[in-house]
């Protein structure tokens, strides 16, 4: 079995990278965070639907996905029209935590069709300070790891607005490995997540 992580030596930075964080200027960023959290409550139909774990799907609809010029501050991020998965991850983390859900940064390695990768590479080259998330056939992606019950994790992809299924899905868009910044060991389906360690979720190739 190949190791998804070992197969990407050209991406050493992926092995240790933490979840993206937005910088904070001061009062302008306080207002931006306050605005984001209030928006989250307006779109969280917790009483109407009676759901505890509903994801912040509205951010997926509101912002388009694309390259972000890093570093980026809260006040800049909320006004941006296009954000990358790191900003999506930071927004969703803030929104989950604001409603009392235990949520943590998470990173995925994903397979991606090579013809699509070459397209993204050209697009990202237009913004030199953007995070280099694109490998040869594997890409880096930021998600949220949510503790849904003691010892149990759910994984939310705020860029695409869905909950990931732990079962391996081979081929394009399937996840190969996951890393979470979590205070305790959590189980995601059959996978055991340990703080800061990459967990293989599927064989590569």
């Amino acid at each position: 079995m190949h190791s998804a992580v070992a197969d990407t030596p050209d991406r050493q930075e992926w092995r240790q990278v933490s979840g993206s964080t937005l910088t904070h200027h001061g009062p302008c960023c306080d207002r931006a965070r306050a605005w984001l959290i209030a928006m989250g409550r307006s779109y969280d139909f917790s009483s109407t639907d009676g759901l505890a774990l509903a994801g912040p799907r509205w951010i997926t609809q509101r912002w388009a996905w694309g390259p972000t010029r890093w570093p980026i501050a809260w006040c800049e991020a909320v006004r941006a029209e296009v954000i990358d998965c790191g900003v999506f991850g930071a927004f969703a983390l803030e929104l989950f935590r604001a409603k009392g859900i235990d949520a943590y940064p998470g990173q995925l390695l994903r397979t991606c069709a090579e013809e699509r990768i070459s397209h993204w590479r050209r697009k990202w080259e237009t913004m030199p300070t953007a995070f280099n998330w694109i490998g040869s056939s594997v890409v880096y992606h930021e998600v949220n790891v949510v503790r849904s019950a003691p010892g149990k994790a759910h994984v939310y992809d705020p860029t695409e607005g869905f909950w990931l299924e732990p079962a391996a899905q081979s081929g394009h868009h399937g996840h190969l490995a996951i890393r979470a910044e979590i205070p305790e060991v959590l189980r995601w389906g059959a996978h055991v997540l340990v703080n800061g360690e990459w967990t293989e979720t599927a064989p590569r190739g």
Binding site: A34, W35, I37, A38, R41, S42, D44, F45, S46, S47, T48, D49, G50
Partner: peptide, 17 residues
């Protein structure tokens, strides 16, 4: 009724913001 409550709680969130 449920959605009314969501709106009321949302108003509190905006007031705090």
């Amino acid at each position: 009724v449920g959605h009314w409550r969501d709106i009321a709680e949302s108003a509190i969130a905006w007031a705090r913001a």
